[in-house]
Amino acid sequence: MVHDGTISIRVNGDHRRVAAGTSVADLALALGLEPAKVAVERNLEIVPRSALAEVAVEDGDDYEIVTFVGGG
């Protein structure tokens, strides 16, 4: 953590800085996503949708946020 109150994370492969103390649900909302329409993996583990608001984003976290798209 640096001293501006932000932490460093990765989201879908891209580096980002977010405020310390952010929840995963906050993170999704800040990205313009509806938490009910996505699935979140944090450091290779699924974050259950019911827990998105409780799980805090921590420095160094690696997130994959996915949704359904057209496919075969």
């Binding site: 996503l33 946020i65 949704t67």
Partner: peptide
Amino acid sequence: TVAVRRVNISDPGQPLLT
């Protein structure tokens, strides 16, 4: 059938299949 892919973070307002 549907695929599972990363959300479009650069343009989150895009319409969704759903």
